[in-house]
Design a binder for these strands. Structure first.
Lengths: 239, 239
DNA sequence: GAGTGGTCTAGACCACGCA
DNA sequence: GCGTGGTCTAGACCACTCT
């Protein structure tokens, strides 16, 4: 009959409900979700439909399933967070681990460009973090990080910040970073870059502009990185 | 009981069989596979098991499914190939299309490093392509491409080469490029780069080293790109 | 042994494309 | 109207974890 414009398959509806609940913090990171049977009963669908959704969420890295144990909200542990969102490796493919060298944290009004990119209101404030990270003990990455203050109250007082912010966002603010978009371009080191990174002015740098998203389509963080790559490369696999 | 070391779920076995058939060229690009029912009957499994495999292959971009029509081997059309493997966009996110400006093609013995990276025997030959590509009519990309000659007989005689080689590999050599690994790093323009790309010596360049894979784990191509990025960025989404 | 996810099946019905 | 893929269900049995 008159086609309902709003038809969505059952599994889409189930997916939306689960995403909403996860986003709302019904279950915290590391906690188990109800079993397939329980969810199916609760939502009035078959176990197979719930399974289809949970399998998809697993593929997206949002939950983890362990046979015999249950389904868990994926945790952004320090290690997992690094492997997922820090793409620099040695030429050999070996992962590297950046360490924090220094950081400065400020609370200030958002600039116009930041308001626009983070969907903020006029007058909104942001936390700005500048930090230097080392690889193999050598300064290698300059980061400028912008987060809406309303999402991370008190962040500016939490010094020193952990090496991987995303695990902090998750554990303290229930912001589960699930995806990020990055834009890469080359630049040459300015005099200031050169001082901070211990390279010559004019040396090649890899710049990475990232915007990170948490669950209910929330834009959580802008991050601008300037990387003195030396023997490091940004690794990505296209499928 | 004594656990069978070689146990694999049915759907893995079905997947392997289908991958083998696709790799062997049983169906060509754009052709339809047998229906789910026919495959299930052929392979002695249920339709649901075949469906699970075909859904996974769809997610990997290897086949396409169209309701009411059938399941097709995915085609690397010029457009699709570009969108899938050429990641440069404008800052606005808008896609750009590179055009061929010039190219030189040589047939020569593989160097030691190439033998190693492409799993070639001693004495194997490669086709080497050097080309310049333009964006908005301006030279922007220098590419050096290495392909084992045995995989692409006669390629060196096919001048001019099409803009997107991957569609040629697929249509003429049954090499279906399904994934690629890229490593990015910054560099500064040499005098030669500067001449070819119309930038100043010392200008920042984005370098991309790619290795491309076809179906049965075949390493098909090495590609080294040097990109005068100007207002272009390399876009990637992490999930 | 009880409960969980993992695999596999069989079948119903719907939506779409095409002759 | 037929054949295709898309959705959804119900149920069986297996593998793993914990008690």
């Amino acid at each position: 009959m008159s086609a309902s414009q709003t038809y969505r398959p059952l599994y889409r509806q189930v997916r939306d409900i689960l995403l909403e609940r996860i986003g709302a913090g019904v279950w915290r990171a590391g906690e188990t979700l109800p079993s397939e049977q329980a969810l199916a009963l609760d939502l009035g669908v078959s176990q197979g439909t719930v399974r289809k959704v949970l399998d998809a969420l697993t593929a997206e890295g949002l939950v983890e399933r362990r046979q015999g144990k249950g389904t868990f909200i994926a945790e952004n542990t320090q290690t997992r967070s690094l492997f997922r969102f820090f793409r620099m490796t040695r030429r050999s493919g070996e992962r590297v681990i950046p360490e924090r060298l220094s950081e400065t944290v400020r609370l200030r009004p958002a600039r116009a460009a930041e308001q626009k990119r983070l969907d903020l209101d006029r007058g909104a404030r942001v936390v700005e973090i500048d930090r230097v990270r080392t690889i193999d003990g050598v300064p290698a990455v300059l980061e400028n990080i912008i987060v809406p203050a309303v999402l991370v109250p008190g962040l500016e007082a939490r010094k020193p910040l952990p090496n991987t912010l995303y695990s902090l966002y998750q554990s303290e603010y229930h912001l589960n970073i699930v995806s990020a978009h990055e834009e890469l371009y080359p630049d040459v080191a300015s005099a200031a870059d050169a001082r901070a990174l211990g390279v010559a002015a004019g040396a090649p740098l890899l710049c990475v502009d990232r915007i990170a998203y948490a669950l209910p389509q929330t834009k959580v963080e802008l991050r601008f990185s300037r990387i003195a790559s030396r023997d490091l490369v940004y690794s990505v696999t296209l499928n």
